[in-house]
Simulated scan of single mutants.
Amino acid sequence: MSNSTLQAVTQPDAGATDPLHELLRKGARDLIAKAVEAELSTFLEQYADKTLEDGRRAVVRNGYLPERTVQTGIGDVAVKVPRVRDRSGDGITFSSALLPPYLKRARSIEELIPWLYLKGVSTGDYQEALAALLGDQAKGLSANTVSRLKKQWEDEHADWQKRDLADQRYVYWWADGVYSNVR
């Protein structure tokens, strides 16, 4: 039996959509598309002078990768990343800095996970907590995933504790005292 104190925020019915929410997602989708297109234009300009023997460009645009979704604070946003073809065979590939190949969640969602952990949400309740905060689109965070992330945070903390402070100078105050609430 779960002793969860989480209260789910009411989400609109699957058939009904929130117009403002949909407008925000559409705006985010369009903005991401324009930003990735600008990245691609810059990338193609770098290789504009690289041509084949017959005068054609060696690096050209070649459609899109399959559409995928990215979890954001406003829900899942569908994204399409352009594909580039290298006709010269040099192995030139385009990788968006905005949408790396395996990005599944926005950084704000990634930062939410440790915050929930620090607030005492158990690993088994993450799915329910994220669904309450982000809606039904919050998927893909099983207890195993959270446990793996927790292990990664512990490793990072251990590395942080072992860092060398020999060349650093810190000023600190030490206060010691006893507080007693005797009647």
Score class of each variant (00 low, 15 high):
1 M>I: 10
4 S>F: 01
5 T>D: 09
5 T>E: 11
7 Q>A: 14
9 V>C: 08
10 T>E: 15
12 P>G: 13
14 A>G: 10
16 A>C: 08
16 A>G: 03
16 A>V: 14
17 T>N: 09
19 P>W: 05
21 H>T: 06
24 L>T: 10
26 K>E: 12
28 A>D: 00
35 A>E: 13
36 V>T: 09
36 V>R: 02
36 V>K: 01
41 S>R: 10
42 T>M: 09
45 E>A: 15
47 Y>G: 05
54 D>S: 08
55 G>T: 06
56 R>E: 14
57 R>N: 09
59 V>Y: 10
60 V>G: 11
63 G>A: 11
64 Y>E: 12
65 L>S: 10
65 L>M: 11
66 P>F: 14
67 E>W: 00
68 R>M: 04
68 R>D: 03
69 T>I: 04
74 I>V: 15
74 I>S: 03
77 V>Y: 02
78 A>Y: 03
79 V>L: 08
80 K>S: 15
81 V>H: 03
82 P>L: 08
82 P>D: 04
83 R>T: 02
90 D>I: 02
94 F>E: 03
96 S>L: 03
96 S>V: 06
98 L>H: 10
101 P>C: 01
102 Y>Q: 08
104 K>W: 01
105 R>K: 10
105 R>D: 11
106 A>P: 04
108 S>T: 12
110 E>S: 12
110 E>R: 07
112 L>D: 06
113 I>G: 06
114 P>S: 02
114 P>Q: 01
120 G>Q: 05
121 V>C: 05
126 Y>F: 15
126 Y>Q: 02
129 A>P: 12
129 A>T: 07
133 L>K: 01
134 L>N: 00
134 L>T: 00
134 L>F: 07
134 L>A: 09
140 G>A: 11
141 L>S: 01
141 L>C: 04
141 L>I: 07
144 N>I: 04
146 V>M: 02
147 S>Q: 14
148 R>T: 06
152 Q>Y: 00
153 W>V: 12
156 E>A: 15
158 A>V: 06
161 Q>G: 00
164 D>F: 11
165 L>A: 14
167 D>N: 11
167 D>Q: 11
169 R>C: 00
170 Y>H: 09
171 V>I: 09
171 V>E: 13
172 Y>R: 05
175 A>P: 04
176 D>P: 00
177 G>F: 04
177 G>N: 09
177 G>T: 05
